[in-house]
Amino acid sequence: MTVTETRPGTAGSQPAPNPGQRLFAIPTKIAKSPLSARVLFPIVLFAVWELSLIAVEEIWPFAVDVLPTPSEVGGFMWDEFITDTLARKNLYETFFISLRRLLSGFAIAMVLGTALGLAMGLSRATNAFCHDWTMAILAMPALAWALFNSIIFGFDDRGPILTVILAGIPFVIVNVREGVRNTPRELFDMARSFQVPQSKVIRHVLVPSLMPFMFAAARYCFSIGWKGLVIAEVFGGQDGAGWTIKFWYDAHRAHGVVGYAAFFVIFAILFERLVFEPISRRAFRWRPQLQTEVVEEAFGEHHEHYGEEETARHG
């Protein structure tokens, strides 16, 4: 008996499909495509949501007054969208306030974290001194920072901003330090052998080699900082996205809480798509795309038989 294995997708080696298989080819293709799976996700989500509400109603009728339906949440989000709100500040003012805090904290965390990361990557002593502190800050939940800072600063911008810094900075430090440790030694040696001046080496070798690490640092710092900020605003804010979700919570508006949480997600996704992805595409244009075809071109003429050299290898 012979067993032949054909890997899916290897053209040419597959037997012709029989007519029966062909009939199902298109539906199967749609069912297997990542796009339809993605589209399916919200449908499944809303179906499960509605069905579980119906199920809960069967068991415990009063809960329906508390649990929000998809249409309630959608309606709430639409009202917020057109700035028709009961809260003190509308959606755009709220997110603008939070964004300002987030960006201030983010900028400070990036600058300080980069400086510390560089120092820790370059000096063993500095690394030994700062390492445990960095790990401690990393291990501390953002909630704890938010509480400390609201105790210290009360209800102004400083608490939330400091929380963003503390939540984000360990990621910046760790990434930049790794970047420094992974600088391409062989490229520095190359530059030295060609007597390239130091300033040029920093600009064209050191900085670009750190870029992927800086970028990872920025992404982490931003998303972790954002989560920290929301928590800080719940405890120590008088406005902002975190404060507003708490407002809906206190007002017993479950659809407001869910809707605002959805705004958080949308905000983070928009930022990723509109800011980080385009910058990343530009900055890492040099990275070979998977689709790029690498072709080995024939060099010069080479019609002669070859083989001698291979047999004379040593070492």
Binding site: E186, L187, M190, F194, V196, H204, V205, P208, M211, W286
Partner: peptide, 19 residues
């Protein structure tokens, strides 16, 4: 060098201009 040691983030021409 044994491996080309090019700057991956610079084009071929810029790699030559670098030195």
């Amino acid at each position: 060098f044994q491996a080309a040691r090019l700057l991956p983030w610079r084009t071929v021409t810029d790699n030559l201009l670098f030195v």
